[in-house]
Design a protein around this nucleic acid. Structure first.
Lengths: 340, 340
DNA sequence: CCGGTGATTGACAGCGCTGTCAATCACCGG
DNA sequence: CCGGTGATTGACAGCGCTGTCAATCACCGG
């Protein structure tokens, strides 16, 4: 590897001790402004970058955070990751990725093992991992700060999310206002807490409009295309199908639209469809999909910032003050629910 | 952070020196089998995992590899990354992600700076980054091994790819065999070498079938949905449009299909469409898309294995012996080119 | 049984940084 | 001008590992 400038080089060039350079680099207090300036100038001139391995070894911290996920949709992962990376770069933190399987019986053991091994300073949890009380407790026990991405049911951990229930309620209202009365709902994966919230929002809107939630029109999906397609085919293959279907995410909604095409039903004429997430897919299918936009990238960034802040705070053992940050969502009304 | 078992603990428990433990961990030669067994047993029992920071600091290596990319499609990134992570996990290597902008004037400087800073032992380059001779040279100069994902034009670096040209040729043959004579082609992003190869394959197949490549039917796209849609609209909006369109990737093909729907043309009846990549999208749109399947995940894994091998090899300065590994592709014939 | 060879093992320095603690400094009130 | 206080700075140990090199071992042929 190419040789690097070390802290010693900077210290010599600035005529201070390495400890002082270290203080400046770590933005510690009690460094005279003049000294700080001088050191910063040298750092800039020499392009000094602290060695992460050395920092990790010497300090208590590894300057890495972990991102745990279980097969999210590619676009979710890509966006989230982009946001997290951005936040990390600002403070020179590294990101360690860790794909896991939610169903794994040894999930907790494996994760804890990994925490010990990588020494990450904190972890970001994505759905449905954040809905495992056991996992969250294990991470807490290990003394590793953690922030949850998206809504979380049980456990009290800091989280960044949108108001899933309200979003689903507004989307349902949109369908009702468009004249639909017989509206079906495809629930999301039962492991995800967000599934419940989205369903709750749907129910609330229906009740507010004095419409009955027909249990025959509520189906259990799994957030994937094929479950949406299957359910869509079943539902639409009757002469008295609903006039609108609200699927809990875009992949399932795409499945419904696929089924509609196959059955030669026009969308939105004979069947209106709405999804959730605003994935790229939602703009690429025909007709383009009415959906709820979640700022995944910003959610990732905020969650990461929150995590980094709690790491900087030190232990931050006060798990009670679990802050919740809510970001804005946006209804995207497109061709699948209204003629273009 | 939770306390960990160190090499000293293992050494004591196994009654050997830490150096011997180190040898076993690093699979070095010249350790008596009996000793190796004994140490391995203790490692297993104590759940010992070497501290990455310490290894990085003490050794010449950082036990990390880098993945450079410039806004690839989410599914490409997710799959590639999954493959790379798998390969890394096998040998306990870490992965550092680095999104960059191909167009950035300071690209090389930034990348080299990053290499120095992270001390990664090697880098994986994705398109179109791997098509920048300047970048590859800079990385070589820095003495960092690198492997290229997907085909690469200039520069001689190890690479893992599919035979893009042959794949495009076969896809074109499929369209010809389906009876099409007037076939349009949408080229990929000009920065990507693969774009050229796919086009070459198309031209070859046309020539082999004694068909003319009508320059009016060859358009420049940019691998994104909107360029495909735009070109599709322009092309299909004439009374004498081609009967088939081969787009250089799935996103553009989806754009063409979107345009066809909008113009109320039936696919594949009035216009057949083929894409390239077999992204999830290709199965989710209607009709599902005929495309070429690239084993992205396995490409990532192989590329990573290759990189790890060349790192283990030591310097591996012999850039001449640039190995090329070709994986199999597969034609996926679906509804967009043949009635379901 | 002896010296020689290569395999096996260990002692020790040092990678570049942070934490601890002591030394020094600047500046205050009396 | 003096002692006292808190801000500022630096000396030094040590984080857990690998690289170097020397010591020791096993085993060979004569």
């Amino acid at each position: 590897m190419a040789v690097s400038v070390t802290i010693v080089d900077v210290a010599k060039a600035a005529s201070v001790s390495i400890k002082t350079v270290s203080r400046v680099v770590n933005k510690e207090a009690n460094v005279r402004p003049a000294t700080r300036e001088k050191v910063l100038a040298v750092i800039e001139r020499l392009h000094y970058r602290p060695n992460l391995s050395a920092r990790g070894l010497a300090g208590k911290r590894s300057y890495m955070i972990g991102l745990l996920y279980d097969s999210p949709s590619p676009s979710y992962l890509a966006n989230l990751q982009a946001g997290v990376l951005e936040a990390c770069q600002d403070v020179n933190y590294g990101l360690a990725l860790r794909p896991v399987a939610y169903g794994d019986a040894e999930l907790c053991t494996k994760v804890i093992d990994w925490l010990r091994h990588t020494m990450v300073d904190g972890v970001l949890l994505t759905p449905p991992l954040c809905d495992s009380v056991a996992l969250i407790d294990a991470i807490k026990d290990a003394g590793v700060p953690c922030v949850v991405v998206s809504s979380t049911g049980p456990g009290s951990v800091p989280a960044v999310m949108i108001d899933e229930k309200e979003a689903a309620r507004q989307m349902t209202q949109h369908l009702i206002q468009s004249g639909h009365r017989s509206i079906a709902f495809i629930k999301g994966h039962p492991d995800h807490y967000a599934s419940k919230q989205r369903f709750d929002g749907f129910v609330q809107a229906m009740q507010e409009a004095a419409l009955t939630v027909d249990t025959d029109l509520v189906k259990q999906g799994y957030f994937d295309f094929s479950s949406g397609k299957k359910i869509g085919e079943d539902m639409l293959n009757t002469h008295s199908h609903p006039t609108a279907i609200f699927a809990s995410n875009d992949d399932m909604a795409a499945g419904v639209i696929h089924a509609a095409h196959r059955l030669k039903l026009s969308v939105p004429g004979e069947i209106a469809v709405a999804g959730f997430d605003d994935t790229p897919l939602s703009r690429q299918i025909w007709p383009s999909l009415t959906t709820v936009r979640q700022p995944i990238r910003r959610i990732g960034q905020s969650a990461c910032d929150m995590l980094l802040a709690s790491i900087a705070d030190g232990g931050c053992q006060n798990a009670d003050t679990s802050t919740i940050e809510q970001l804005d969502f946006e209804l995207k009304i497109r061709g699948s629910s209204a003629p273009e």
